[in-house]
Design a protein around this nucleic acid. Sequence first.
DNA 1: CTAATTCCTGACCATTTGGTCAAATTAACG
DNA 2: CGTTAATTTGACCAAATGGTCAGGAATTAG
Lengths: 214, 214
Amino acid sequence: MSKPEKVAKTTSKAKIRQENEKTILKAAESVFAEFGFRGATTSMIAERANIPKANLHYYFPTKQALYRQVVDNIFNIWLQAADSFDDCDDPIEALTRYIEKKMDISRENPMGSKVWANEIIRRAPVIQDYLETTLKDWTESRVAVIQRWIDQGKINPVDPQYLLYMIWSITQHYADFNHQIETLNGGTPLSDAQYQTAKDNAIEIILTGIGAHK
Amino acid sequence: MSKPEKVAKTTSKAKIRQENEKTILKAAESVFAEFGFRGATTSMIAERANIPKANLHYYFPTKQALYRQVVDNIFNIWLQAADSFDDCDDPIEALTRYIEKKMDISRENPMGSKVWANEIIRRAPVIQDYLETTLKDWTESRVAVIQRWIDQGKINPVDPQYLLYMIWSITQHYADFNHQIETLNGGTPLSDAQYQTAKDNAIEIILTGIGAHK
DNA sequence: CTAATTCCTGACCATTTGGTCAAATTAACG
DNA sequence: CGTTAATTTGACCAAATGGTCAGGAATTAG
């Protein structure tokens, strides 16, 4: 954006819209993550996207609409992770894959995770219906899968619901609290190797914790 | 405030100040929790404390000062929990007590927990020095304790740092995401019994997960 | 080329914001 | 009681906020 080179060749009207919306959404995500819906201002978002505020309002008429789009995108990413927890017979394989996927998303998408946290803290004014439908259904079906593992003696009789909360909490933590973790890491972000260790540790403790025998 | 009975006997000037500050701080905590520092407004806080905005500014000259006080109080509560993780020889006893204490705080003080989360998400503009000093020192000393347990073969060789993050994440999750949990619980808050189960589950999985043999 | 369509943006506006202030009220104290 | 100090509050202000709009610039269609 700071570079004024207009790549004239591919600049069609359609492309312009697509690219600008993407830039704005990315800027919006980081501002909403940092300040919440109410604390975020459209001028901050516009500034972070390197466009005039009026231009932002051309693409997204209201702050609400922009926020909704951001939250929607995050929910779609979440759905993607949910898919990786398939109806598998082997708890080790299924859980390892799921935790890994969620940890990867936390690392690659820390801002989205924070927006989600903020939204829940505000008691989900925008996504309450998702929680009550999609999330609830998904959770119930996974609880059933976990319960089956228990009945088959593949894992210890833990309460499936709370096992899920545990997994969600760790993955969420590495995104939302990465500043705290970074500070305790001497002011430098976790390296890829460190993050891998964090991932392995989480998987190891949880799998061992529920008695998933290797 | 809504009741006009002036309890003349105990209404000394000192008491008035003390009580008003307490009321304001409580209101501020819940508003800051819900909207973050930037999203919170002094009139919302004043309204929730049932006093005129000008009166709030009489006790706390700026929003900053009020926020600082709120965050300070939360940090002190955190220190209280930290104490319960003493330099104990028995990992089962020490960790059980610590996790239990943190879970209790999450239940009794969900607003404070959310303010903390918001502050960290904003990259700790107010408490960065606490993180770098008090929290860092405390963490390092506990890492040493856990490492000793490992060296003595009392628990599996997990990375102590990441074990702490795991504990923090669950306790934080039950406070910050209680709305989501409530929604998945059919719209009703977790009962005391359910919360006890959550606590037991977390303790069980973590202790088993690190191989702390009973 | 021209006309239609989309994109861009400085200037503007009503409302909300954090914070002030002077005047009124209440309590404390001798 | 009367004087002093603390508390309360409606009215007010400058700055910031979400959003609008008219008119200009660029692209596309015919």
